[in-house]
Amino acid sequence: MTKTVLALTIGFLAVSFLRAQETLPSPSPTATPSRSIRISFVPPPLEGKISLGVYSEWGQLVRVLHQEAEFDEFTIGADALSTKWDGKDDYDYDLPPGKYSAHGFLVAPMKIGAETITSSAVASGASSVRIKLIANPLENNERPTVDICAGFDDDDGYLQTIDGLPLVTVAKRQDAKSASLAAGRDNKSVIVFLSNGANVRQVEVSGITKMMAFDCGTFELK
């Protein structure tokens, strides 16, 4: 009899404890405020692909928002293309509140020559080359100039602006450890050098001036 009462008492206490737990308010997760910024622009009148970057108020590239993107990767409106930025940098870290801007380039198809291989002692490149672009008639400006250089990521070697915005892929990276470039045979071409320390692959890229710059204005991140 004593054992039965003890068992019932323990059972009652357990049920009471569970009911008390159910009535306690559960903590709710803290909502992260939305930092989505809508960025819109009128694309320049040129066929090609779009590279678009977000910049700090000091002109530093903080996010490559689009790289060699097709038009259908944007939201197509009645009079503009638009995209969204989540307020993060390229490493997925939240950036501090402040003023930012966005601008980019519409890059027409370029002619990528066949790769040739030379010794590292023969090939020599520069850190950057200045080129003059096609004027964007929508912005009523003269032909702007831009400094470009060679760069690479885990997969590809490409031409990029000197501040790091990729413009056009020119080759697979393979085992390259460094990249440089030199002016080509005229002011509309460059030669890209990809070196692994022993040999250098070089690729001539023609039609590099067939780009138009565009501006998306400034905006505030809160």
Rank of each mutant, 00 (worst) to 15 (best):
M1P: 02
M1L: 01
T2G: 02
T2Y: 04
T4Q: 12
T4A: 13
T4N: 03
T4I: 11
V5N: 09
V5Y: 07
T9F: 11
G11K: 01
F12K: 00
L13E: 01
L13A: 10
V15L: 15
F17Q: 03
L18Q: 11
L18A: 14
R19I: 14
R19L: 15
A20G: 14
A20W: 15
E22C: 01
E22A: 15
T23V: 13
S26M: 11
P29F: 03
T30C: 02
T30Y: 02
P33T: 05
P33Q: 06
P33W: 03
R35P: 00
I37A: 04
I37W: 05
S40V: 00
F41E: 04
F41C: 06
F41L: 07
P44G: 12
P45M: 13
P45H: 06
E47S: 15
E47N: 15
S51K: 05
L52M: 06
G53W: 06
G53M: 09
G53E: 07
S56H: 01
E57V: 01
E57S: 14
E57T: 07
E57F: 01
G59D: 06
V64W: 05
L65D: 01
H66R: 15
E68K: 07
A69D: 03
E70D: 12
E73I: 00
G77I: 03
A78S: 14
D79T: 15
D79F: 04
D79C: 00
S82V: 01
T83Q: 02
W85I: 02
D86F: 05
D86K: 08
G87M: 02
Y93C: 00
D94M: 05
P97D: 13
P97K: 02
K99C: 01
S101D: 00
A102I: 07
F105L: 15
K111F: 12
I112P: 10
A114R: 13
A114S: 12
A114E: 15
T116F: 06
T118H: 07
T118L: 10
S119V: 03
S119C: 02
V122H: 08
V122T: 12
V122L: 14
S124P: 00
S127G: 14
R130H: 03
K132E: 15
K132Q: 15
L133H: 08
A135F: 04
A135H: 06
A135P: 09
P137K: 04
L138R: 11
L138F: 12
E139Y: 06
N141H: 08
E142V: 08
R143Q: 13
D147K: 11
D147V: 07
C149N: 13
A150P: 06
F152I: 00
F152Q: 10
D154Q: 14
D156L: 11
D156H: 10
D156A: 11
Y158L: 05
Q160M: 15
D163Y: 09
G164Y: 10
L165N: 10
L165Y: 11
L167R: 07
A171K: 09
A171W: 14
R173D: 09
Q174P: 00
D175P: 00
D175T: 15
D175G: 00
A176N: 06
K177N: 11
S178F: 02
A179G: 02
A183D: 04
K188G: 15
I191N: 12
L194K: 04
S195Q: 08
S195K: 05
N196G: 07
N199R: 13
V200G: 09
R201Q: 04
R201V: 10
V203F: 08
V203S: 04
E204K: 08
S206H: 08
S206R: 11
K210T: 13
M211K: 07
C216E: 04
C216Q: 02
E220I: 10
